[in-house]
Measured scan of single mutants.
Amino acid sequence: EDEVKKIVKRLIENGVDDEQIKEIVKRQGVDERIVDKVLKELK
């Protein structure tokens, strides 16, 4: 989960929008619920 957080944070800093972040992270095989949780925490 910490790995996911790092990735998502980097994507947000690069101006990637939420939908794209979800797609990218899902392609890495991460559960969507984890992605949603991380996005909420970082906003």
Rank of each mutant, 00 (worst) to 15 (best):
K40D: 08
I12P: 00
V16I: 14
E13H: 07
D2A: 12
V35K: 00
K9P: 00
V30Q: 04
V30T: 04
D31M: 05
R27L: 13
K37Y: 06
K22I: 12
K37A: 09
K9I: 12
R10A: 15
V38T: 03
V25D: 00
I7M: 14
L11G: 01
Q28L: 15
I34Q: 04
K43Q: 10
L39C: 03
L39V: 03
E19F: 10
V25S: 03
L42H: 03
Q28W: 15
E3R: 09
I34H: 04
I7K: 05
K9M: 13
V16S: 05
K5V: 10
N14K: 14
L39N: 01
D31F: 04
G15S: 03
K43W: 07
I12V: 09
G29V: 02
E23M: 12
D36E: 14
N14M: 15
K26P: 01
V35W: 02
E32G: 11
L39R: 03
I21Y: 00
D17A: 13
E13R: 10
E1C: 06
Q20C: 05
E32T: 08
V8S: 01
D17Y: 05
K9E: 11
G29S: 03
V8P: 00
Q20S: 13
L42Y: 05
E3I: 11
R27M: 13
V35Q: 00
I7E: 07
L39T: 02
D36A: 12
K9A: 12
E19Q: 12
D2H: 08
L42S: 03
D2S: 10
E3G: 06
D36W: 07
I7S: 04
E41M: 11
V16Y: 15
V16E: 05
G15W: 03
V30E: 02
D17E: 10
N14T: 11
K40R: 14
N14E: 15
D31A: 09
D36I: 14
E23Q: 11
K43L: 11
V25H: 02
E1K: 07
V38G: 00
I24H: 05
D17K: 11
D17T: 14
E3Y: 14
K26F: 06
V16M: 15
L39M: 08
E3P: 04
V30R: 03
K26H: 07
V4A: 04
V25L: 15
R27I: 07
V38S: 02
Q28Y: 15
V38W: 11
K6T: 10
K43V: 06
D36M: 12
D2V: 09
V16N: 07
E13N: 08
D2R: 07
D18M: 14
L11F: 04
I24S: 03
L42P: 01
V8C: 05
E3Q: 10
I21A: 02
R27Q: 13
I21E: 00
R10K: 14
I34Y: 06
L42N: 02
I12H: 08
I12Y: 12
L11N: 01
K9T: 08
R10S: 14
G29Q: 03
I12M: 15
K22Y: 11
E19P: 05
E3F: 12
G29R: 02
V8T: 02
I34L: 13
G29I: 02
K6H: 08
G15L: 04
K43Y: 10
E1P: 07
V35F: 07
K6W: 11
D31S: 11
G15N: 06
V25G: 03
V16R: 06
E19D: 13
E32V: 12
V30A: 07
D31H: 08
E19K: 11
R33P: 04
N14D: 14
K40I: 09
K22S: 03
K43S: 08
L11M: 07
V35C: 03
K6V: 10
K26E: 05
I21L: 04
V25C: 11
Q20F: 07
V8E: 00
V25E: 01
E1T: 09
K5S: 06
V38A: 05
E41T: 06
G15R: 04
E41K: 05
K9Q: 14
G29L: 03
D17S: 15
G15F: 04
I12W: 14
K6N: 12
I21C: 03
K5W: 13
V25W: 05
D31L: 07
I24A: 04
D31W: 03
E19L: 11
E41R: 04
E32N: 05
E23Y: 08
K22M: 12
R10Y: 15
D18Y: 13
I34T: 10
K22R: 14
D36V: 12
L11P: 00
D18I: 15
K5H: 07
I21H: 00
E1W: 15
E19C: 05
D31P: 13
I34F: 06
I7Y: 11
V38K: 01
N14I: 13
V30H: 13
R33M: 12
E13D: 12
E41W: 09
D17G: 13
K6F: 09
Q20R: 13
V35L: 12
D31I: 04
E23L: 13
D36H: 07
D17I: 07
E41V: 06
V8N: 00
I12A: 06
I21R: 00
E32S: 11
I24K: 03
I12Q: 12
L42E: 02
G15A: 03
I34C: 02
K22T: 04
N14F: 12
K43P: 03
L11R: 00
K37E: 06
K26L: 14
E3N: 08
V38I: 15
G15E: 03
L11K: 01
I12E: 02
I24R: 04
E41A: 11
K26C: 09
R27C: 06
E23F: 08
R27H: 09
K43F: 08
D31G: 05
V38Q: 02
Q28I: 15
V25F: 15
I7T: 08
E19M: 11
E1M: 13
K5Q: 05
D31Y: 04
K43D: 05
Q28K: 11
I21K: 00
V8W: 01
E1R: 07
Q20L: 13
V8H: 00
I24M: 10
K26W: 05
I34R: 04
D18A: 12
V4D: 01
L42F: 06
R27N: 13
R33K: 13
E1A: 08
D36K: 07
I21T: 01
I7L: 14
E32K: 06
K43E: 06
V38P: 00
K9C: 09
V16P: 00
V8L: 06
E13A: 14
L39A: 01
V25N: 02
I7C: 06
N14S: 14
K6S: 12
K26N: 05
E23I: 13
D18K: 09
V35D: 00
D17R: 10
Q20D: 11
K5L: 09
K43T: 07
D18T: 12
K9V: 08
R10E: 15
E19S: 10
R27S: 13
D2T: 07
V35N: 00
I7N: 04
V16G: 02
R27D: 07
E13C: 04
I21V: 05
G15Y: 04
E41F: 08
R27A: 15
D18Q: 10
K9Y: 09
V30K: 04
K26A: 11
D31T: 07
D18C: 06
D31E: 10
I7H: 06
K5R: 15
K22D: 01
E19Y: 11
N14Q: 15
G15M: 05
V25P: 00
I7G: 02
V25K: 00
E41P: 01
L42T: 03
R33T: 12
Q28M: 15
K5M: 11
L11T: 00
K26Q: 10
Q20M: 14
V16W: 15
V25A: 09
I24D: 02
E32I: 12
K9R: 14
V38N: 01
D36Q: 09
R27K: 13
V16C: 08
V38E: 01
K40H: 12
Q28A: 13
I7A: 06
V30P: 01
K40S: 11
R10Q: 15
R10C: 08
I34W: 07
Q20G: 10
V30G: 07
D2W: 09
K5C: 05
D18N: 09
V35S: 02
K22L: 11
E23R: 11
V38Y: 08
K6C: 07
R27T: 08
L42R: 02
K40V: 07
I21Q: 00
D36S: 09
R33F: 13
L11V: 01
L39S: 01
I24N: 02
K37D: 05
V4S: 01
E23K: 10
E3K: 08
Q28D: 07
Q28H: 13
K37M: 09
R27Y: 06
R10V: 14
K37R: 12
I12C: 03
Q20A: 13
V8M: 07
G29C: 03
I21W: 01
E19V: 10
K6R: 14
K22N: 02
L11C: 02
D2M: 10
V16A: 09
K26S: 11
K6L: 13
K5G: 03
V35M: 04
D31C: 03
E32H: 08
